[in-house]
């Protein structure tokens, strides 16, 4: 099983290039972080990686096939996509959501839904209404629904935004664990968490790829400082290089 190949992806919206000739390859395993300042094109790229529609030139290929052209059911079984914002139109429960996520793989063993719910820490909340859940509970329910079918590729768009620090670290650990056997592509904002947990980092700036390397190499390079306009220090911890913003108050 090969990973995702992004080939000359270009998206132009309102005369402005959102993605500008983006090419890179993701291995079939590992946690790949997509970084970049606001408006760099990360979410647009994540959508296309997951096979969501949108006018574009170029292609995202999975094992030689264009993901945009895959039949919906097959794509759903292979690629999980967790969008940045998710609001269901009806007041469903986490259990219903996870069941819908599980239904895309008819071969899942019984009890998968239940264990996914309890793994997400939603055991006591599985039958509550969506409108009564906290932001973190919603995010965890969505993550459980997207991953319950164990897709070979998982694309998540800012999964930690609404999580507290403990759950955010827990989520990064789970993404990294998935990355040992699967491909996970995550749009991230927190450079420190990204350099701590990711295997590779791809940095976008104004629709172009400005870095595509191992997380350690990116953490040590000057690219992140240039792209974000913030000074970073690097910390070596347990064999990995972590980049931390220097935001001391004067």
């Amino acid at each position: 099983m090969t990973g995702l190949m992004v080939h000359k992806l270009t998206v132009i919206r309102g005369g402005r290039p959102i993605l500008d000739d983006v090419s890179f390859a993701c291995p079939s395993q590992g946690l790949v972080g997509l970084l970049g300042p606001n408006g760099a094109g990360k979410s647009t790229l994540a959508r296309l990686l997951a096979g969501q529609p949108g006018a574009h030139a170029g292609a995202v290929r999975l094992g030689g096939e264009d993901v945009a052209a895959l039949p919906a059911a097959r794509r759903a079984a292979m690629i999980g996509y967790m969008p940045q914002a998710f609001t269901p139109h009806w007041d469903i429960s986490p259990r219903m959501l996870v069941e819908m996520g599980a239904a895309r793989r008819p071969d899942l063993p019984g009890g998968t839904v239940r264990s996914a719910i309890s793994e997400a820490g939603l055991g006591g909340h599985a039958d509550r209404l969506w409108s009564t859940l906290s932001g973190g509970e919603k995010a965890r329910a969505l993550f459980a629904a997207v991953t319950v079918a164990d897709p070979a590729i998982l694309v998540v768009d800012e999964p930690g935004a609404s999580l507290d620090i403990r759950h955010r670290i827990q989520l990064m650990r789970r993404l990294a664990e998935r990355g040992r056997t699967r491909l996970v592509v995550a749009v991230l904002h927190d450079i420190e968490l990204a350099t701590t947990w990711c295997d590779r980092l791809v940095i976008l700036d104004a629709g172009r790829v400005v870095a595509d390397d191992t997380a350690d190499a990116v953490a040590r390079s000057d690219t992140i400082a240039q792209v974000f306009g913030v000074a970073f220090e690097t910390v070596e911890a347990g064999g990995i290089t972590v980049a931390r913003p220097l935001c001391g108050r004067d």
Binding site: G51, P53, A76, W90
Partner: peptide, 21 residues
């Protein structure tokens, strides 16, 4: 029935859960 349930998640989620929207 199943399609309407999925559509209720929004078109993006419906699609990512396998619905040909």
């Amino acid at each position: 029935g199943r399609g309407l349930d999925l559509l209720g998640l929004g078109e993006d989620m419906a699609r990512s859960f396998g619905l040909d929207v």
